[in-house]
Amino acid sequence: MSDKTSLLTDERRDALQEVVNIAMGQAGSSLASIVNEFVELSIPQFHLARAEGQLLALKSRPEHQQNAVIIRQPFIGQLRGEAFVLINAPDIRYLAGIMGYQGELNTPQEQELLLDIGNVIAGACLNGLAGQLDFQISYAAPAVYSMQGSLAALLDAQTGNWPYALLMEIRFRLTEHSFTSHLIFMMTEDSIDPLTAAIDRLLSELQ
């Protein structure tokens, strides 16, 4: 299998960074509307790489050893894969508090909250990418993995299905709290060529 990560030249990387920035601006705005606070956005850091290397690096981060909440959003169409949103459990409790949930969350409340947040972050970002790059994508039902679930086992199970990962690290800062979320798009090999072709179309329109 050839390694397609080298297709991301500096020029394409700059273009994809800008597309991701715009998509995350939409995600930040959606998040602001559900938490009813101004969300300060950072520049998203992102890497396109073979999935196994990316996930190895992610799993080694101490904050994600035991504590990550994972929301999984499959997508199909011209780009095909699964989006995973990783947020740390204490950040979820903070968001629950400012969204008006009182005390300990019961399971249905927690599911609802996580699906909302996952939809805001993954959905807005995927819609933003698809809109700007002129892709048609649609979504299958999302799923939430419990805080006790093993991040390592879940991600390991994905690398066979989806060999490439676009890993994005996004820092959101609210008035009194900042948190980092990881958004991973696991993609099929045949999604990479349309992705680079779409970036090239954007760039060629500027010549």
């Binding site: 920035n21 998509a23 995350m24 601006g25 939409q26 930040g28 101004f38 969300v39 956005l41």
Partner: peptide, 8 residues
Amino acid sequence: SADIQPKA
């Protein structure tokens, strides 16, 4: 800007 929040 991409930051489309009304407060921004």
